[in-house]
Amino acid sequence: MADDNLKEWVLPASIPFSELKGKDLEECLYWLMDAMGAKDLEWRTGGSGGGAADGGRDLEAHFYTPSAADDNIEPQIWWIECKGRTGTVDANEVKNAVVNAQAKDKLDCIVVTTNTQFSNPTIDWVKEWHRSSGCGTALIWNGC
């Protein structure tokens, strides 16, 4: 008799990262954020063309963490922007995501993720922006 409670594991090596683009990459990140404990998780569907119909992010998530001072629970708002590509992600795409995020009051974290890799100028720009802006942890994420 088979155990109905047996869960199947998805091994990261078996995920076809190079094929994850558009909705598939967004869905991968949606479920990852959910597994990380995100609340009020919103998947924003964009439109076609060059505009940002999704408001500059593909996902918006809230994480609730205790504050360092008094252990009160405080929300953190994260924007997650997905860049599914066949080549490297250009620095201008990350810059645009950061500019959109800077327009949002009380945004705690922006995550730009890709299924491929970021160009060296992109990585350099993020490090410099992080150093000069005084914001939290710079996050460069290659692969889902």
Rank of each mutant, 00 (worst) to 15 (best):
V99P: 02
T113H: 05
T116S: 12
G87E: 13
N115R: 04
D105Y: 15
N92D: 06
T116K: 07
S119F: 09
Q117A: 11
A103I: 12
V94R: 02
D105W: 15
D90E: 11
L107M: 05
Q117C: 09
S119K: 11
N96Q: 13
A97T: 03
G87F: 10
Q102V: 10
T114D: 09
I123Y: 03
G87Q: 10
Q117S: 14
T113F: 06
Q117G: 12
V94Q: 02
V111W: 04
N120G: 10
T122M: 05
A101P: 05
N120K: 14
E93F: 05
T113Y: 04
S119L: 10
Q117R: 13
D105N: 14
V99G: 05
A103Q: 15
K95Y: 02
I110S: 00
P121L: 07
D108Y: 05
T114P: 08
T116C: 05
V111L: 11
F118I: 07
V89Q: 00
I110A: 01
T86Y: 13
D105H: 15
F118A: 01
T88W: 07
G87P: 11
K106Q: 15
D105G: 15
P121I: 05
T122K: 04
T116D: 06
T113G: 07
I110D: 00
T122F: 03
E93S: 08
T113Q: 07
D108S: 12
S119H: 11
P121K: 03
P121S: 08
N100G: 08
K104R: 14
D105T: 15
N96I: 06
V98C: 04
N115Y: 04
P121T: 06
K106F: 15
K95G: 02
K104L: 06
A97G: 03
K106V: 14
K95F: 04
V98W: 03
N92W: 04
A97D: 00
C109D: 07
D90H: 10
K95N: 03
Q117Y: 11
I123A: 06
V94S: 02
L107F: 04
A91Q: 08
A91R: 08
T86N: 14
D108G: 13
T88H: 12
D90I: 08
E93V: 04
T88D: 12
N96T: 10
V94M: 03
V112F: 00
K95V: 04
